[in-house]
Design a protein around this nucleic acid. Structure first.
Lengths: 249, 249
DNA sequence: TAATCCTCTTCCACTGAGTGGAAGGAGTCC
DNA sequence: GGACTCCTTCCACTCAGTGGAAGAGGATTA
């Protein structure tokens, strides 16, 4: 005992992730760290309300009530909806993987991802988080983040590939150039074979998101990609500015 | 007393809807029917976990953890993702409002909606429900619904406009023709000035969704719209069939 | 076919998590 | 300056919640 009922119910919901979209009762209890009988009761309540749904084979999945609430989250109803047409245009003209991301603490949270046809290893998934220092969108968000966030990230530059920037001074210099030139790039720093370029998305003066693309090679097409990204980013910013009723961060 | 802690926490989450995306603590307590002190404690827990977020002005909004869980719901990760490219293609070629909907009990649940430029009154919103008998997607879903669902809907044919079909025999005949011809239409039955056409989306033999469009007038362009909808619906079906790992309903 | 294992459901003696009215602080408005 | 509203905190009181155990049913294995 000692844990609240609410925290246990939330732990049950939190047992689901990208790799575990359907869970048996026993797995739910185990992953949430809750005795089976207790889990059974709480899962029953979540199911009756619609937070969970039960499949014919007995497994539980996230229910439609959570899906509907998720649509109300500012990140969904504001940024993602505003950005969607521009992301599809961008994807349509380049056929590369397109990302829209926001900062979440000291990580990048992927808000939207349109998968490209080009054979490039892409590890992002909508709703997932990746490190800021090794991704294009992450470098953009880091460049405009509060100083305390930047300091926290700079303390923990883990190597992901042989090309990952792990020296603080070098990353600081890159971030300064992001602010000066208006875009960030990476070269196989997150995945071998994948390069990226990203630009900021502003709401007024505030950088609220980053828009990026992943391609196998940047060398010949960088100016064209930067231009296309900036056009899309401006479009998103105009749309955000035109919808003052929806607040989001 | 008498209500469970879990049901109260869920009631707080359920206080949010399309018209109430940001709520003060007092409003949350009121809408959830919970004393202020109790609401304060439970909202604090939801906030700490990330189910709710607090805005600078003190209002609460749905938090990112709910948004992320919502992405895991089968309706999101299966149908909606599979359908997205086809919906954008359809929208791109017609510029009309495009809907993707599923049956939820005896109502239509709108899973995706791409808003058109044509000035047609459209009342649907993603995540919302509308009656089955007065919408194109609803008639499709009703035509292929279990008998007991059909009987339940037929008992309650409320009039929405002067053109709404409220006689059971007439609707039964229309549903038979939906199954025979492969598409449903409406003519100002839900909103004056709005006509719609919809087709079934199948997964194997099962009709799992309906794909529809809303236009001001159907008379000259019905065959072309039906054809475009069916092409898109087949594409969605093929994509669903190719992703067996994701289960959804 | 039988034995074993696992999941899920139900029960109930026990207990501490949860309750909510009241009071007070802070901010806004007139 | 007073009135009003929202939010936060307190704490005496109580019943909602707990979880080990037992059993049913289905799946797996020998």
């Amino acid at each position: 005992m000692g844990e609240s009922v609410t925290s246990r119910a939330l732990a049950l919901l939190g047992a689901f992730d990208g790799e575990h979209r359907s869970l048996s009762l026993t797995d739910l209890a185990r992953r949430a760290g809750i005795p089976l009988a207790t889990a059974h009761r709480l899962v029953g309540e979540l199911h009756r309300w619609g937070a969970l749904a039960r499949e014919p084979n007995g497994g539980y999945v996230i229910g439609r009530r959570i899906w509907q609430l998720g649509l109300l989250a500012p990140v969904q109803s504001g940024l993602r909806q505003a950005a969607s047409p521009f992301l599809h245009d961008l994807y349509g003209t380049t056929l590369a993987t397109v990302h829209l991301a926001v900062r979440d603490g000291v990580e990048v949270l992927y808000v939207e991802r349109l998968a490209g046809h080009v054979s490039v290893p892409v590890v992002s998934r909508v709703g997932s988080r990746l490190p800021m220092h090794a991704t294009g969108v992450g470098k953009v968000l880091l460049a405009y983040a509060p100083e305390e966030v930047r300091l926290e990230v700079l303390k923990n530059l883990t190597r992901i590939t042989a090309y990952t920037v792990t020296q603080p001074a070098r990353l600081i210099d890159q971030l300064r150039r992001v602010r000066a030139e208006g875009y960030a790039t990476t070269g196989e720093e997150m995945s071998l074979g994948a390069c990226s370029v990203a630009v900021p998305v502003r709401n007024g003066d505030t950088v609220v998101a980053a828009l990026g693309m992943v391609v196998p090679d940047l060398r010949r097409q960088l100016p064209r990609l930067v231009s296309a990204l900036q056009v899309a980013a401006h479009g998103i910013s105009r749309t955000l500015a035109a919808s003052p009723s929806v607040q989001w961060k």
